[in-house]
């Protein structure tokens, strides 16, 4: 299954329960509740009530402006509209392919899948023929270091680590230093999960970022926030507060393999103009794929068709 089919098959279940899919909604004679039903559909995808009503407003404006143009499809309009929120600026490693090392700092709240995603991301770079080093800077959660080391063994990648409870900033610093000294292509640093309301932990993150930045001598690097597709509107607060602590350069959306649609990224992309770098679609090490805004928007709005067409 490719990304569309996977997304589609998950999304379809919710849709069936809802009983009125978009295709039906637009196909039939428009009922007086048409916009309301459409709004509900978006809310159920975790797009959020505010964003849902903004999108409805966009649609109404567009319909008014294109009154004489019968050839256009309103679903297509919404798809394009949603896809347009996601900026397409490439990551550091694409923009500056000669820079070494590429440093990626993985951040996020507890339980979103940072360590697993770190492993999968390392595997992706390895498949591209790049050398990778991992930094186990989650020194808080019991056995998190062990978890990353097992990933290292599985992928045959070195892991910089200290014992549990060690200073995470020191581990991050050592990882960058090791990557520089050993001329390694990519260094990925896993950090501890922290709820965005814990000020001391957010300050700690600022310190980790600061040390990495200093060691990188102000060359740009990626700070990717890992977001869980099964979580709802709280994700907005996560990104807002992480952005207060450190500059976030992109998002990774995990657990899109279930029935959850992670519609919240639509709001996040529109609000913060941040790209989604990858989406996690399953448990296997190959299940981290690049994000495609157009495919995502299509899978969000018409899962049945994305299943058929691919």
């Amino acid at each position: 299954m490719n990304i569309l089919q996977r997304l589609g098959s998950g999304l379809k279940k919710t849709r069936e329960k809802l009983g009125s899919s978009l295709a039906q909604l637009f196909g039939k004679e428009r009922s007086p509740q048409f916009y309301e039903e459409l709004e509900d559909l978006l809310v159920l995808s975790d797009v959020g009530p505010e964003q849902a009503s903004l999108l409805i407003r966009d649609l109404k404006n567009w319909e008014r402006d294109s009154e004489n143009d019968n050839g256009k499809d309103p679903v297509l309009f919404l798809e394009e509209r949603i896809a347009s929120f996601f900026p397409l600026d490439p990551p550091v490693w694409v923009e500056q392919p000669d820079w070494k090392p590429v440093v990626i700092l993985m951040v996020g709240v507890n339980g979103v899948g940072k360590t697993t995603t770190t492993g999968k991301l390392a595997h992706r770079f390895r498949e591209e023929g790049k050398s990778v080093i991992l930094g186990a800077a989650d020194t808080f959660r019991a056995a998190a270091v062990q978890q990353l080391r097992l990933w290292g063994e599985k992928l045959d990648i070195p892991v910089v680590h200290q014992k549990e409870g060690a200073d995470p900033a020191a581990v991050a610093f050592d990882t960058v230093k090791a990557a520089l000294a050993r001329k390694i292509d990519v260094a990925i640093i896993d950090t501890a999960g922290r709820l965005q309301t814990k000020h001391n932990l957010m300050a700690e993150l600022g310190k980790i970022y600061g040390l990495v930045k200093r060691e990188m001598e102000d060359r740009p690097f990626e700070t990717l926030i890992v977001l869980d597709a099964t979580l709802g509107q709280n994700t907005i607060s996560q990104l807002e507060n992480f952005r207060k602590a450190i500059p976030v350069t992109g998002m990774i959306l995990t657990k899109l393999d279930g029935t959850s649609k992670g519609g919240i990224v639509v709001s996040l992309a529109r609000k913060f103009h941040l790209p989604v770098r990858y989406v996690g679609l399953g448990e296997g090490k190959d299940d981290l794929v690049e994000f495609d805004p157009v495919l995502y928007a299509r899978a969000l709005l018409r899962p049945e068709e994305s299943l058929r067409s691919s």
């Binding site: 919710t14 339980g111 979580l231 959850s260 919240i264």
Partner: peptide
């Protein structure tokens, strides 16, 4: 997870239907 979105109730229903749920703990 207390932060779970719209899908939470469907997840819960699925677990209840397949295994049987006696109660919930929110984290």
């Amino acid at each position: 997870d207390a932060m779970t979105g719209q899908e939470s109730v469907n997840v819960a229903k699925a677990f209840d239907a397949d295994i049987g749920v006696d109660g919930v703990i929110f984290s």
